[in-house]
Design a protein around this nucleic acid. Structure first.
Lengths: 227, 227
DNA sequence: TCCTAAAGGACTGTTTTCAGTCCAAAGCGT
DNA sequence: ACGCTTTGGACTGAAAACAGTCCTTTAGGA
């Protein structure tokens, strides 16, 4: 029960955090990050430290910077080709993530369906949905993550948004360790439609069921690589 | 979606974290903390910083220190009389905590019931149960928290233990803002028994139902103070 | 009785992080 | 063409946090 108070030094944590927002599709390619002064404040870190982190991400190819008025820091449109992290999967970590996800995401979807959604919220969900559906295979993960996080946002609970985002991030870390097989993307997309429709028509049990089914796909994929 | 990378400086975070382990009953009164060198490493903080934090907690009356071999840092047996933090309750925070808790705790209890438990695990649950049942009103909260965390530990999922502990900690923060009325402690204790029995006999649906009922008590208590 | 081990206590020099200030680029409006 | 504004870029001195080392206290064992 005694977890570390902090995950490393501020510099590394900042890099990691910004990288996550990109991998989770919260900042999409070509999108502009907030100005450094603002971002530093939001992240609770000094501008100097933030700049060190941004510099690192820039030279790693994740970010591009333009100076001057109306300039800023932009997410790179050309995705960096990550060498596949192929350490072996940790079975305990896999089970833990899948289990936690199976608890929170269906409940989140059900809540989103129960909430009464503004027109803007509905539109946002549909945008995320079509965005992931029309995505090429290599940029799929961030958009997929974005869609699931969008659902959490509809639920209206900040804790759930955090939990879904963090869990998704851990999941991404695991998925990075196995080869990407694009066979079941169509299947996943069909399930996304089911979930979104159930939420939009306010059918909580259907949203929950569809989410459970959807998660089983990823779960069996990952479990397959454990054997 | 841009949360702060760190909650403050290392010193404050360390104080807060240790205080939590006490308030959550993870370190019970009169219990000995790990040696400073070890604790510092577990918390991912330097010994100097840890010592600053321990010193603060000591002079605030939470800890007592004995030097020499077989000495150490002990949780104070005389509880500090906290002045009631009575800022107004934030309704959004209340709803968020209650909602999140209502999602994870019943699922946790169900999981614990499904797991096949070692004899030691069963005994541990019973110890926590009788500990909270026989607790005087002023030391009730930490033992109550300890019981709920013990259930999460039975589930075998580290993420759930973290989530339950953190949620409980937020809940404690809210409960500190309202007067303690001991009327429903007996009711809560009865529900604890129900939950523990359901888990021990492996009856997941009953464990889940009993937990839902139990949480409703705290929920309506807190909601009552919003109006 | 004295020695040793295990713990807290104290100090030092280095590295990290910070807040604050000023500089440089670049687009927009007058 | 000029200046204003918004952005990233760079520097400085102070504060925080660190790792490492040594000191002090205390109980148990040889």
């Amino acid at each position: 029960m005694l977890r570390p108070v902090r995950g490393g030094n501020a510099f590394e944590e900042t890099i990691e955090h910004i990288l996550q927002t990109i991998k989770l599709g919260i900042f999409a390619p070509a999108e502009k990050l907030p100005p450094e002064r603002e971002l530093a404040e939001q992240l609770g870190v000094s501008r100097a430290t933030l700049r060190d982190a941004l510099g690192e991400l820039q030279s790693a190819g994740y970010l591009e910077v333009q100076r001057g008025r109306y300039g800023g820091t932009y997410v790179s449109t050309t995705p960096v080709h990550r060498k596949p992290d192929d350490g072996p999967l940790d079975p305990a970590e896999v089970e833990d993530v899948l289990l936690f996800r199976a608890i929170i995401e269906p409940a989140t979807a059900a809540l989103a369906a129960k909430a009464d959604l503004s027109a803007a919220a509905r539109r946002h969900l549909q945008v995320c949905l079509s965005d992931v559906a029309s995505s090429p295979a290599e940029g799929y993960r961030p958009r997929d993550a974005r869609f699931h996080i969008a659902i959490a946002e509809l639920s209206g609970s900040g804790s759930l948004v955090n939990a879904v985002a963090e869990t998704r991030s851990r999941l991404n870390g695991l998925l990075d360790r196995i080869p990407l097989l694009g066979t079941n993307l169509e299947h996943a997309n069909e399930q996304h439609v089911q979930i979104a429709e159930a939420i939009l028509r306010g059918d909580a049990p259907a949203a929950e069921r569809a989410t459970v089914e959807h998660l089983e796909g990823t779960a069996s994929l990952l479990r397959g690589f454990l054997a």
